[in-house]
């Protein structure tokens, strides 16, 4: 018969949990693995994850391309304008799976299970967001690939292209921390699906993602210009073209984006960990 319990003194296998920061990394990796396995076994989510950006690229390029292309600076194709925008858009919307996933874990009692184990308090969140970031990176890769097919190019070389993707993924990942708070506060998955998604529409659309800001009414331009999504999209465009637009420098474009990313994480990660302790 199997011994089901721990003999008080000598346990049959001796093992030890890592401590401190190493515990967070150790536990976070295991939780991230779990979330990625879960993702690979949810075909619906994979298809949605991959098809949605493809649809956006193709639809926007061919449906709006003609109209909006005319408003663009000369020499820039709509594909060149569109792909960085679609990427931010897809990654920002993609962050909502963090809130839905967490709400689901909460509702199913999985969070309770984790919280009753002697593991790092931040590991479940860190693991989930690591997994979600991997997913966002895959989405970004798909968008670049499809973009290439409709005429998008890394005009400034591969290195800047990689930086461009990195910036978008980092911003999406920061947004996941915001979403984690939503997932922990809402009572159920259904609410998370709405609460994690609806507010993203103004955030994404009142920006330079699909249309140049100059085409908007003046009052809206103020909002749009200061929207972090615009800042990210503009930086990405500059990176894909290989140079900042006239009147801007790399520093003037990158600094606000870096501040937003760091700021979002600095504010929302501790808040999320705090809610996680309490739920």
């Amino acid at each position: 018969m199997t011994d089901l319990r721990l003999p008080t003194h000598a346990s049959p296998d001796s093992y030890q949990r890592p401590t401190g920061l190493r515990a967070v990394v150790h536990d976070g990796r295991i939780v991230a693995w779990r979330n990625l396995v879960q993702l690979t076994r949810t075909p619906g989510l994979i298809i949605f994850t991959l098809i949605q950006p493809v649809m956006f690229v193709v639809l926007f390029n061919y449906v709006f391309g003609g109209a909006i292309g005319a408003a663009l600076p000369p020499g820039i194709s709509y594909a060149q304008f569109l792909i960085p925008g679609v990427m931010v858009q897809a990654l920002v919307f993609g962050s909502s799976t963090t809130s839905v996933g967490l709400a689901d874990d909460l509702q199913k009692g999985i969070v309770d299970r984790f919280r009753s184990l002697p593991i790092a308090r931040s590991a479940v969140l860190a693991g989930r967001i690591t997994a979600d970031t991997v997913r966002l990176a895959v989405v970004a890769f798909v968008i670049v690939t499809v973009g290439m097919l409709v005429g998008f190019r890394f005009e400034g070389g591969l290195l800047l292209g990689i930086v461009m993707v990195f910036v978008a993924v980092a911003f999406g990942s920061a947004m996941c921390w915001v979403q984690a708070n939503i997932g922990l506060l809402v009572p159920n998955v259904e609410t998370a699906q709405t609460a994690g998604f609806v507010w993203l529409f103004p955030v994404v659309f009142i920006s330079s993602v699909f249309t140049p800001v100059q085409t908007m009414p003046t009052w809206l331009q103020v909002v749009a210009r200061n929207n972090p999504v615009t800042l990210v999209a503009n930086l990405q465009r500059a990176l894909s073209l290989g140079e900042p637009p006239a009147g801007s420098t790399w520093a003037s474009m990158a600094t606000p984006v870096a501040l937003w990313i760091v700021g979002l994480v600095a504010v929302f990660a501790p808040l999320a960990v705090r809610s996680y302790r309490k739920v």
């Binding site: 779990r34 396995v37 879960q38 076994r41 949810t42 199913k108 009692g109 999985i110 309770d112 299970r113 009753s116």
Partner: peptide, 14 residues
């Protein structure tokens, strides 16, 4: 401690 909650808390996808 070990906890078996009122509703099974296992990951259905695993």
């Amino acid at each position: 401690i070990g906890l078996t909650g009122q509703y099974a808390a296992v990951d259905e996808k695993l």
